[in-house]
Design a protein around this nucleic acid. Structure first.
Lengths: 194, 194
DNA sequence: TTTATTTTGCACCGATTGTTGCAATTGAGT
DNA sequence: ACTCAATTGCAACAATCGGTGCAAAATAAA
């Protein structure tokens, strides 16, 4: 009973995610959200409580998005090629039609996480998602004799995770996928260790 | 002639740099600067014009600081060891007494550069500083037969630069130098290519 | 149709943002 | 001692921030 909503909550969260993604947390004001989402601020506050909650919910949608990207690792038989594909997908991922939006996880890790424990906890979880997915893939490659057993699978996964953060940050100031792709190839050469 | 200043401009810039470093650009308000610098806002505006100019001048001081760190590369004969030392120094660099401040270049690349062309230009210059210093060191290592001639020196330098951004971002959410140091060793293994 | 309940639009809140006008203060040059 | 330019402290500015109170609008249940 009562008046029915004019918007879909999940749709709003997805689009809010994109706005935070492009402009960052502080620079995306409630007013900005209002106009670009087509929803009155009062409805936003009724639904999500406050800006922080709205952001955290939006960030969860990003986490789901990133997680589905990581699942692509399982679809390629060769471990190194699987990781290469992930990198190439992520490089396209951080490039939007107009300019470079980078990666919401990286942006948030730098801008918001240091001052907000709730956000920091969530970012840590997302980093662990990445690390664990890469770890699993490296282990699989070792079992299949595609990667050397001498590789420290866990630390290599940590290394690759840091590296993803790196090119996300790099992409924000240096447009163009060419350098990113060539640099990614060097990153992958770590997997060729004897 | 006229009334003399109560502060040293260079000293203020250095301390402002530290404040921006810890809290970020937006979160460091003029009021915050006023109290922590011990200088009235009116003096700040008289001297630097506005907040953006003050920040850019402070960022230049950071650039000089980073540049002097890069010069340490020339002080170690072995190229790989020189780069390792740089990494270890930078890992300590991003760790302050109280918590993790990360790297002002990385923080700014993510938070401010995308919306501010002047800042973006300066960040690009700083990245080029890093890349060029690493390139020179890699070349030196190749000339001295310490590193393989098969290494693409330029792209390896780009890779290492991205990697530095990566662990700067990583450090903001994952305190502790241990993981960073171990991951750095994997990064350096790229230089062992045959 | 009436009632009960939820959502929406509008006005408005106090706090804070960066920035400036102005007059008092300072101190070197005359 | 006087002048004049530079610097300072204080008050205030308009704009914007996140957030709310309240009544009208909308809709399901009675």
């Amino acid at each position: 009973m009562g008046r029915q909503r004019k918007f879909d909550e999940e749709d709003i969260l997805f689009r809010a995610m994109e706005l935070f993604w492009i402009r960052g947390y502080e620079a995306t004001s409630i007013q900005h959200l209002e106009t670009h989402l087509g929803v009155g601020k009062r409805s936003l506050y009724n639904t999500f409580g406050n800006k922080e909650n709205l952001f955290i919910e939006a960030l969860k949608r990003y986490q789901a998005l990133a997680l589905s990207g990581l699942q692509g690792l399982d679809e390629t038989e060769n471990a190194k090629q699987a990781i290469r594909d992930l990198y190439l997908r992520r490089i396209e991922f951080v490039a939007s039609k107009d300019g470079w939006r980078g990666c919401l996880m990286t942006n948030t890790a730098v801008e918001l996480a240091p001052h907000n424990p709730r956000v920091a906890k969530q970012i840590k979880a997302m980093l662990k998602d990445t690390e664990n997915a890469l770890f699993k893939t490296i282990r699989r490659g070792q079992n299949n004799r595609q990667l050397s057993a001498n590789l420290d699978a866990r630390m290599t996964a940590v290394f690759l995770t840091q590296n993803v953060l790196g090119f996300n940050a790099f992409a924000k100031v240096s447009p163009g996928t060419r350098n990113l792709k060539r640099s990614a190839e060097i990153t992958l050469s770590v997997l060729d260790a004897p």
